[in-house]
Write a protein that binds this DNA or RNA. Structure first.
Lengths: 236, 236
DNA sequence: TGATAATGATAGTAATACTATTATTTTTGT
DNA sequence: ACAAAAATAATAGTATTACTATCATTATCA
């Protein structure tokens, strides 16, 4: 058991979210500077917003230079795609880890929805990434990573494959519970995007959401999903 | 009846979507140049995307100057807020017009969801606005109008009040059908945002949506909503 | 017709979004 | 331990962006 624990530890401390290498010029996970770029870009984007964020400002934060940052990312758009991908990759890993051993399809989906919708907590296995703040960025900025004129080209190049893979996984879970439901893919995509949106509304437009201190996003989304599926047996 | 018709005509041809005057410096609906700015900004944003769009480029399109455009809008962000508001105001007007006389709550909501989710058609009453292209912009760009660091300040100033009013209207319709449903506001906001998102996915990420030639967004959203509400009596 | 408002023409500025070159430091293979 | 290679820093430069300011010209309408 002790051996197993240390094996587990090794597995976990060596974790690395695998991101399409076309998104970056040089893998930021491969060097100290790269990690500082990622770490501090999260903090700075959260602080001043993506529009005001520049490589020049970031370079000052990390006592480096613009040109050094440009060796890792072509531009700030690619950096945002990278951060979003990292988030979804991390979420996918946690989702698979948490649902893998659950046999019951309904419980499995419930757990998956929990992982997706619950407030994010710091994950100690990635010390250069503050997942709590990254989640804030994903809520407020990540839509901008695909709402561009280049989306089709970048989609072809696989920039969004992690997100899509996560969507496929969830779609399968839904189909396993109710294969007769007509719009599993759309339900999944509205859940993924809608979850972020509800978190945003809760913070900035509380009058048009019921999600607040008393009602969690998890509760709303879980309810929404299961109200669309047959053969579910009440609340867990 | 002939008199009534011409009164109706007058009413309709004088239509003007009312937009919070804090969004603009000078009302673009008040002059020829203003209308050309709005008309051509829609076309140009659709053509090159909001990031690449500049007042300089727009000024060349309309054979005017940057400084003239700046007399109407402080910056391109405000112009986007304006265009989004116009869209939601126009939708609200059509929604009220179409649902006003419907007594049956379920039919009323069905009609409202139709208006919101159906592909947009050209409206002849506003000749300086191409509603079909405006809808494309709303799908791809309008999220950027509130995903900013200034959102709370701008919300206080009423920049998003038309959108929120539309959300309240829909929330009331839902509550009228099922007052026991626990998340009417969140359901409405996920429907409004989700509708745009499904249109986007249909165009750019067809593998994670069921909305396509065969399944309309209307069908998916209507289904989603009514599956969450009690006391509905099958399909219309 | 004369004043006023609207638009156009032109110029200027700080910041952005890069690219290029060269110098310095760090890493690494033997 | 040392040379070669790789990574980073320093510096400079460019076209474009996102404005602001000023003044000239052209409609409007009282």
């Amino acid at each position: 058991m002790c051996a197993k624990f240390s094996e587990m530890e090794r597995l976990l401390t060596n974790l690395k979210v695998n991101i399409n290498s076309k998104i970056y010029l040089k893998d930021p996970q491969s060097s100290d500077l790269g990690k500082r770029i990622v770490e501090n870009s999260i903090l700075l984007i959260d602080k001043i917003g993506f529009e005001q964020f520049t490589f020049r400002k970031l370079s000052k934060e990390i006592n480096s230079t613009e040109s050094s940052i440009y060796r890792y990312f072509e531009n700030k758009h690619k950096l945002l795609v990278y951060l979003s991908s990292w988030y979804w990759g991390w979420l996918e890993y946690r989702l698979v880890f948490a649902t893998n051993s659950i046999e019951n399809p309904e419980q499995k989906l419930r757990k998956a929805l929990e992982i997706i919708t619950q407030p994010v907590e710091q994950d100690m296995h990635f010390d250069h990434i503050n997942e709590v703040i990254l989640h804030k960025i994903v809520v407020s900025e990540s839509s901008k990573s695909f709402l561009t004129k280049e989306v089709d080209q970048e989609n072809k190049e696989g920039f969004f494959s992690i997100y899509k893979r996560l969507a496929y996984r969830l779609t399968e879970m839904i189909e396993e519970i109710d294969s007769s439901y007509s719009h599993p893919k759309s339900l999944v995509s509205i859940v993924l995007e809608g979850t972020l949106h509800q978190h945003f509304l809760r913070e900035h437009f509380p009058t048009i959401t019921n999600c607040n201190q008393r009602h969690s996003v998890t509760e709303f989304i879980t309810n929404l999903v299961f109200n669309n599926l047959k053969e579910h047996h009440g609340s867990k």
